[in-house]
């Protein structure tokens, strides 16, 4: 084990090294008592590996494997498991503070909060905090969309708040594409609203904001791009022409969707 520890902490990409550890754990963890020591050892080693290489697929998987084993053996209700999961959640927060775009860590966090049974509201709150820290963090916007989608249909009250959040970002920095990407999803969700009045109102207010931002920042493509999906046919054509001239790299796209 000492040898593989050295191997996986210095070269965490070597899956075979991690596999030897998994085999040893499976052999050693015969009783629950013995297993506990093995698992905490694996969490320790994979944490060292992740500290050196926070984007290593095998290290993240080894950690997930270890925690899954614990849950399967001891049950989700076990105090030890709950404490471990809480510790893991805190570890994720720490790592995401260091690199808020680490998608391995976001994925692992999803696994942990799901295992913990964390409420949707609590996770939404977390993504909001990450967005407030840095609204260029597309990973957090993505996570927010995934949570809201998983909760079911997005209602008009929720949409209103989300539109505000996104527009707040592009009033602050209209060139940052993260919030605009999210905005595109919001428009799709607004279109899916079942009550026609609510749907029309949501689309109209989104369009109004995009028009204002486009007016404030005539050289910025993003509000125009959003308008292209919201305006009527004639205005849409004008907007796409304008886009072709300020964003010539993607002129092929603007022509094709015109």
């Amino acid at each position: 084990m000492a040898m593989t520890e050295k191997l996986v902490t210095t070269c965490p990409e070597v899956t075979t090294g991690w596999n030897r550890r998994k085999e040893a754990v499976e052999l050693g963890a015969e009783t629950a008592e013995a297993a506990r020591d093995w698992w905490s050892e694996e969490l320790r080693v994979s944490e060292i590996a992740l500290r050196n290489a926070p984007k290593s697929y095998p290290s993240w998987y080894h950690r997930k494997w270890t925690v899954s084993r614990m849950i399967r053996t001891m049950g989700r209700e076990s105090e030890t498991v709950r404490m471990t999961l809480e510790r893991e959640r805190a570890l994720c927060s720490r790592l995401l503070d260091a690199d808020d775009r680490n998608f391995h860590c976001w994925a692992y966090r999803r696994f942990i909060v799901q295992s913990l049974g964390v409420t949707t509201e609590e996770e939404l709150e977390y993504t909001l905090k990450k967005i407030e820290d840095n609204f260029s963090n597309y990973s957090a916007w993505h996570q927010r969309s995934a949570i809201l989608d998983a909760r079911g249909d997005v209602d008009s009250a929720t949409l209103k708040g989300e539109f505000e959040l996104a527009s707040n970002a592009f009033y602050t920095e209209p060139e940052d594409q993260s919030a605009w990407m999210y905005h595109r999803w919001l428009i799709a969700r607004a279109r899916a609203l079942k009550i026609p009045d609510e749907r029309d109102a949501a689309i109209a207010s989104a369009l109004e904001i995009c028009r204002e931002v486009a007016e404030l920042e005539p050289g910025c493509k993003w509000p125009l791009l959003a308008r292209a999906s919201l305006e009527d046919e004639k205005s849409r054509r004008d907007v796409l022409d304008r886009l072709s001239s300020i964003d010539p790299a993607r002129v092929g796209y603007y022509r094709d969707v015109a």
Binding site: D133, F135, S167, N168, Y171, T172, E173, E212, V213, E217
Partner: peptide, 21 residues
């Protein structure tokens, strides 16, 4: 900074844009 600007609810969108620019 842009973090504080994003968090500031006292400004309108246009005010934010003008100040940030």
């Amino acid at each position: 900074d842009r973090r504080e600007m994003f968090a500031d609810a006292s400004m309108t969108g246009a005010e934010k844009r003008a100040l940030m620019r």
